[in-house]
Simulated scan of single mutants.
Amino acid sequence: MILLLPSTNLSVPSPAERARSVLARPNPATVTSSDRSLHLTGPVCHTTPQGEVTLLVPDRHMVLAEIGAGTLEATLEFTDTAPVDLRDSTRSLLWINGTLRVPPRSEARNLALAVSDQDPDERLLDLGHGRTMVTLAPDLVVHSDHDGCHLITPAEFAGAPADPFGRWEGPWLRHLEDSHPDVLWGLVAHCPEPLPQGRPRPLGVDRHGLRLRLEGPEGDHDVRICFRRPARTPDDVAHEVQQMAGLLH
């Protein structure tokens, strides 16, 4: 990953923050135990203040039968995929090893309320209406992306914030790709350093900057363009991007 310098801000999300942000997005997951692997399509994931991961899965999903009335030692693998159709859509991988269980209904409701206090999400309303909660108590967290493979302790994972634009990212990047290709080319044209040849595609965004992928005949090149200061709102993100593309003066 190339870090560009349109400003003096070089902040990037920590590995623990990136791991937490993967869970906020509707990424596919695989539950692997000693006996079998089960696929989860876009499970609804949250993290409690204590670092326990909650997942809402369909009531009749096979993972519920696998856990049964007890617990299950398993590894959850999340594949963080780009929200636009890239040649290589995988951005990162997240593995969480720990203990799975199905909490009683009353405990599940309390966990959902505790999560919604910090992260209001209307999808939590599906609990008890076609969805059942499964919890995972992490023992080990590993996040792998362009920056390498990072071992994250449960305490680091629990204490890290997810990026505030995690759920907003997908629709916004698709809108940027479909409706504003001029902005993407403007970002390339106004970069302070020469970039590899290729079509600019939106790869990711967080409060610290925007990531582009340049798809060229010689391969793909990922570029990170840092914001001048961390964005606090979606309007901040749009303003930073437009200014770096030379659309604002």
Score class of each variant (00 low, 15 high):
A16Q: 04
D235E: 03
P202A: 06
C226D: 02
Q197A: 11
D163T: 00
L214G: 03
T81L: 13
E215T: 02
V44I: 15
A24E: 14
E122R: 15
L4G: 10
G128R: 07
L140H: 11
R105W: 05
P154F: 06
R232N: 07
P28W: 07
L94E: 09
D163E: 03
C45Y: 03
G68S: 12
D85I: 09
R201V: 09
L124P: 00
V63I: 15
D121Y: 02
V223C: 08
G148A: 03
L195N: 03
W172K: 00
R199H: 00
H208C: 12
V237P: 02
D126H: 08
P234S: 07
P49K: 10
C191G: 10
T30H: 05
F227M: 01
M1S: 13
A108F: 10
E107K: 00
P234I: 05
T153I: 10
D235F: 11
I152G: 04
L5P: 04
L55M: 06
P161C: 10
N110R: 14
V188W: 10
V237G: 01
C191D: 09
T99N: 11
P194F: 11
R232F: 06
F157M: 08
E218L: 15
H180C: 11
R207K: 11
L100T: 00
A189L: 11
S37G: 04
L195C: 05
A24S: 14
L113V: 09
L64F: 13
D178K: 14
A74H: 04
V63R: 05
V63T: 12
R18E: 12
I225D: 05
P49D: 04
D80C: 00
A69C: 06
L93A: 07
E169M: 13
D222W: 13
A238K: 09
F157E: 07
G42A: 13
T47Q: 09
C226H: 06
P6I: 12
Q118P: 02
R20F: 01
V223I: 08
E169D: 05
F165Y: 08
V188M: 08
L248V: 14
T47F: 14
L56M: 03
H249T: 11
R228V: 00
S11R: 03
P161E: 04
P154Y: 11
D147F: 13
D178N: 12
T99G: 13
V134G: 06
F227V: 00
V53D: 06
S179E: 15
L38P: 06
G70S: 10
R207Y: 10
L56T: 00
G246I: 05
E107W: 00
L151E: 15
E215Q: 08
A245G: 07
H221K: 02
L38Y: 03
V223F: 03
P202R: 04
L38Q: 07
P161Q: 02
V183M: 07
H221R: 03
L93K: 08
S33W: 07
F78T: 00
L93M: 11
T75V: 12
Q118W: 13
Q118K: 14
H146P: 01
P192M: 03
L111V: 11
T41P: 01
N110A: 15
H129M: 11
G42Q: 12
V102T: 15
E169Y: 02
P161N: 04
